[in-house]
Design a protein around this nucleic acid. Structure first.
Length: 292
DNA sequence: TACCAGGTGGAGT
DNA sequence: ACTCCACATGGT
């Protein structure tokens, strides 16, 4: 397949190679892969894109030639290229929080993505008690076996299946994607969403507490997955997902040993403020880098 | 081998 | 309301 020429995409708040890896492959999205030359290939919605950091030229992208015209604006939206994410980080309470201050310093340019809502939900429905590498494997199998090819050509990239498509898959089809017990949840959620067009989008547009509560009505979606969907797939930075890494971070650095996830989530939103979810991503990156 | 992984839902207090 | 634990699968 033919790729377009490399084009520069200026990020208002740039990131180096390590931070770019954290953005693309740090647990927000599950469809980015880096080759030996350091080129990233990623798929979201009906877009496939390659990214690289070129010395002196910053972030560059290329897309399948037939789709390159649409890919540029879609990529800018996905990466929130024009948003002043450094100002967003600077507005966090790092001046009175030494641990947050060193997290910000350790990952300059870290940002929240703006991913498609439905596939963010699918990714995080796969995430329960799985490592990121294994979530990526499940998502890859779902795309390969259940998702339509992006182009008519064989061996092309596949998008993820829509919820309507997933509703038509059998649980055996889903279990063949190595989903384990998550297959039942994904199938039940698919059947609900297929029967309620627009429900997901309405939910994401609701005020934060209502949106979170409504998402948690879906089978397999609890507080943590709901927060991830809102944070990474709906542009809702007040969401504060609490997983095992955040529990550990808050115990180690904030004295919250023994606190329950719901208590930590409440503390996080109160302490870090209206962009608590951005702080959460910094804490998450720090904790994973400093795992024992 | 035993334990853990970007949890959730159901059963039993 | 809170605690405990099964749930599939793969890696260390």
């Amino acid at each position: 397949m033919a790729w377009s020429e490399w084009q520069t995409l200026p990020l208002r708040s740039p990131a180096d190679a390590a931070v770019l890896a954290e953005i693309l492959d740090g647990g927000q999205a599950f469809r980015w892969h880096r080759d030996a030359a350091g080129v990233w290939t990623g798929i979201w919605g009906d877009c496939a894109v390659r990214l690289r950091l070129a010395a002196g030229a910053g972030l560059q992208w290329s897309a399948p030639a037939a789709r390159a015209a649409a890919a540029g604006p879609a990529l800018a939206e996905y990466l929130r290229a024009g948003d002043d994410t450094s100002a967003e980080a600077d507005a966090l309470p790092w001046r009175s929080d030494p641990h947050l201050a060193r997290c910000l310093a350790a990952f300059p340019g870290l940002r929240l993505l703006r991913q498609p809502l439905g596939e963010t939900l699918l990714g995080f429905l796969c995430s329960a008690t799985k490592r990121i590498a294994q979530i990526k494997q499940m998502v890859a199998l779902l795309a390969e076996r259940q998702g339509a090819p992006l182009d008519a050509a064989p061996s092309a990239f596949h998008r993820l299946p829509t919820w309507v498509e997933l509703a038509g898959a059998s649980e055996a089809d889903l279990r063949a994607c190595r989903l384990g017990f998550r297959a039942r949840h994904i199938r039940a959620t698919a059947q609900f969403l297929a029967g309620h067009p627009g429900w997901l989008e309405e939910t994401a547009a609701a005020p934060y507490p209502a949106a979170r509560d409504r998402l948690a009505l879906l089978p397999g979606v609890g507080a943590k997955v709901a927060d991830c969907v809102l944070l990474f797939g709906a542009g809702r930075p007040e969401a504060f997902p609490v997983d095992t890494w955040i529990l550990r971070a808050m115990a180690r650095h904030y004295g919250l040993s023994g606190w329950k996830p719901a208590q930590v989530a409440h503390f996080g939103r109160a302490h870090f403020g209206p962009r608590a979810g951005l702080a959460q991503q910094y804490l998450f990156a720090w904790e994973r880098r400093h795992r024992e």
